[in-house]
Design a protein around this nucleic acid. Structure first.
Lengths: 154, 154
DNA sequence: TAAAATTAGTTCACATGGAAACTAATTTCC
DNA sequence: GGAAATTAGTTTCCATGTGAACTAATTTTA
């Protein structure tokens, strides 16, 4: 039973140092924490990101949002449609350029952001995580640099 | 044109410090690097992980692999079937427990691992990345700790 | 030892996200 | 000013991955 075939402890070799693999595992773990904390309602991470950015940037074009969030335009169309159907987002054809769609929050959307923001930005409690507060801060700093986000709001 | 509605520079607020968001962006970036370096053949990250682990742990059960890689059993079935159809993996019903499936590499599978491993573990060149070698090492260390992988092979 | 519970894996139906082709509006370039 | 190119967004179809229900084999328990 100490044989690799039957043990749960398997050798990872270089995979245990592979950033891609570690990022994938990390993201799955964070997703699980998110859903434990916020899954009770239907709010999903991507959806909150979108309404959050609309609340900070009212009137933003959905293409600009897609680019910043690295969501493909085709997917963004569906995401925004869901948010519109749910009554959180208002779509407006831009006056100057009738191809473009401007996004704003409805009153309901604003209430949702307000009600959930503290949970959304606080669901990674240090009790649930193997890193200290200082390590978590350093991890965040390195990830920011890795993806090219430097300041607070850019 | 400096208005949020029309600018590509949008405010992120707290999202710019959200580990979940940063992990997602990081993973997309790493995926892109992987596909630039290795996309020419059909090898995908998940598939390589599987044959890599089989090469290090011959005879491993596919359920054990699924658990370690955080792949759902239903998906693992399809993944392994693809690898079997491609002639990389051999499935064997375990003698002692006929419910279980043991995985080993074929000669072709071994050749694939050997041929690609240096690329797979080296595609994140420091030229392509905003972090120094030391920062990359620290990021890797923190991610390992975050997901609970401590030593090399566990 | 027979019935109940658990475990390993599979199948099927669905959801999530992406690529390619498309429409409509705008800009560029003779 | 009109054809060609570009841009914003949408639609359609497909690949990837998951949940739930299922089969078969094994273990537990009364």
């Amino acid at each position: 039973m100490t044989d690799a075939a039957n043990s749960d402890r398997i050798r990872l070799g270089n995979l245990s140092r592979s950033p891609g693999f570690l990022l994938r595992l990390s993201q799955l773990q964070v997703f699980n924490l998110f859903y434990e904390a916020l899954g009770h309602d239907q709010l999903r991470p991507g959806e909150f990101s979108v309404i959050w950015l609309i609340s900070l940037n009212p009137g933003v074009r959905q293409g600009v949002l897609a680019k910043r969030l690295m969501i493909k335009p085709a997917h963004m169309t569906k995401l925004v449609k869901r948010l519109e159907d749910a009554g959180h987002v208002q779509r407006t054809i831009e006056a100057g350029d009738r191809r473009a769609v401007q996004l704003t929050l409805t009153a309901k959307g604003k209430r949702l952001v307000d009600a959930r923001k503290s949970e959304v930005f606080g669901y990674i409690a240090h009790e649930n995580v193997r890193l200290s507060a200082a390590e978590m801060a350093e991890l965040t700093r390195l990830l920011q640099k890795f993806v090219g986000i430097e300041g607070d709001s850019l």
